[in-house]
């Protein structure tokens, strides 16, 4: 028999959707207004700055329209930039995948053996502090001028946020829940699978987002240094500067930042899909 048959005064807070005065389509439109306005301003300032340059120096900052038509939409431009984008994307995602795999293992091991965390954390920070351009020549000597060496650079750059954010998530478990698992004598693996891991997922995705941006930077830096094989975006930058082809240089810049945004946004999307219902960090 039920001890409590009614909980009238204790109803759950009403779902926010039901009290929205505006239809969702209109709301979405309103949310798009500020970034669009900002875009118009940025393009305007760009146009103004470009126009203010003397004729001899205007090549340094071509007007937006010229960048769009000559640097992006011209066959000469996109036939080079798109394949390069593909190669850079593959390099960044490949390196990111390795960094994620290594980071997950590292985070788990450090969580399991706390003394290892104390022992190795300073060196994790040190990896983060490595000036990547300074060790790129070393990579070249060690692995040759190839995809693998570039990949190593991406991994080194993108690695740090994964184990650190993962570990933070694993450790920031509600004390009461830890006590509850202790009271019921659950082993380490149960605790990890049922408590620490799900608890760490939102933080882990924050780490993914940061690493994704770093991986794109790492890929471009690697390509710029190695200057070998089929050209990626990083190599195109150097070529365009050498050829004084600044329209296409700017086009290439826009494409590479779009790549970073795309990877970031997809992690954002998944994080919202998975944890939006229960974790603040995933709220839009």
């Amino acid at each position: 028999m039920a001890l409590a048959t009614k909980v009238l005064e204790e109803q759950a807070p009403p779902a926010p959707i039901s009290i929205q005065p505006r239809p969702p389509g209109k709301r979405r439109l309103r949310r798009l207004v500020p970034p669009l306005l900002c875009f118009v301003i940025v393009v305007g300032v760009w146009q103004g700055l470009s126009a203010s340059l003397s004729n001899g120096r205007q090549f340094l900052l071509p007007p937006p329209w010229e960048v769009l038509t000559k640097g992006l939409l011209a066959h000469d431009a996109y036939s080079k930039i798109l394949p390069a984008l593909g190669r850079t994307t593959a390099l960044a995602l490949g390196g990111l995948a390795v960094a994620v795999a290594l980071g997950l293992v590292t985070g788990t091991v450090l969580y399991r053996f706390r003394w290892l965390e104390r022992a190795t954390y300073p060196y994790l920070v040190a990896i983060q502090a490595i000036p990547i351009l300074a060790i790129a020549p070393l990579m070249a000597v060690a692995f040759g001028y190839n995809f693998f060496a570039k990949g190593v650079i991406v991994v080194i750059i993108a690695f740090f946020p994964i184990p650190t954010s993962f570990l933070l998530g694993l450790k920031s478990v509600d004390r009461g829940l830890v006590d509850l698992f202790t009271l019921h004598r659950s082993g380490w693996l149960t605790r990890f699978r049922k408590l620490a891991l799900p608890n760490a997922l939102p933080q882990l995705f924050t780490g993914f987002r940061i690493s994704a941006g770093l991986a794109v930077i790492g890929a471009i830096v690697g390509e710029q240094f190695f200057q070998a094989g089929q050209p990626g975006l990083g190599m195109l930058f150097i070529q365009y500067i050498d050829y004084v082809d600044y329209d296409q240089l700017y086009g290439c810049l826009i494409v590479s930042s779009l790549l970073g945004i795309a990877i970031y946004a997809s992690f954002n999307y998944f994080s919202h899909r998975f944890f939006g219902s229960w974790h603040e960090s995933a709220q839009p």
Partner: peptide, 27 residues
């Protein structure tokens, strides 16, 4: 032994049912 803490100490990613099932699951 049953232990009810000061805070509800629920798992925010689990539904009410899944939270209530936890102890049976651990056993």
């Amino acid at each position: 032994l049953g232990y009810v803490f000061q805070d509800p100490t629920l798992m925010p990613w689990r539904t009410v049912t899944a939270n209530v099932e936890l102890l049976a699951e651990l056993h």
